[in-house]
């Protein structure tokens, strides 16, 4: 569905994991772009109705792209630059604390 227009020799591949699945992105990609490009359909389910959501605005305005990154909840995937080894998980209902 998405393809890279060109390779940029200056940008190293960056591998991270989404729900345990390895995804290869490029240095400088945001998590949201990388996930959408990898064909991930939805990043979370809404807390109100459980509806699936995917990135909408890509610029930090809509907050629809909230994911868990390395254990931290409610991170905007479009405002997070990919880092090697990141562990990213879907959020279902903005779940949080372990008591």
């Amino acid at each position: 569905m998405f393809r890279r227009l060109e390779e940029d020799a200056g940008r190293v591949p960056v591998r991270f994991r989404f729900e345990g699945r390895e995804i290869e992105a490029r240095e400088g990609d945001t998590l949201a772009a990388a996930l959408v490009a990898a064909g991930v359909l939805s990043l979370r389910d809404t807390p109100v109705s459980g509806a699936p959501r995917a990135p909408y605005c890509m610029m930090g305005v809509c907050f629809d792209c909230l994911v868990e990154v390395d254990g931290r909840k409610n991170c905007q995937a479009c405002m997070t630059v990919v880092e090697p080894g990141m562990e990213v998980r879907r959020q279902t209902g903005e779940d949080g604390a372990e008591a």
Binding site: F2, R3, R4, L5, E6, D8, R26, G28, D29, T30, A33, A34, V36, A37, M58, M59, C78
Partner: peptide, 8 residues
């Protein structure tokens, strides 16, 4: 934005 930041 995807086109600019990532060439996608």
């Amino acid at each position: 934005i995807m086109l600019k930041t990532s060439g996608l």
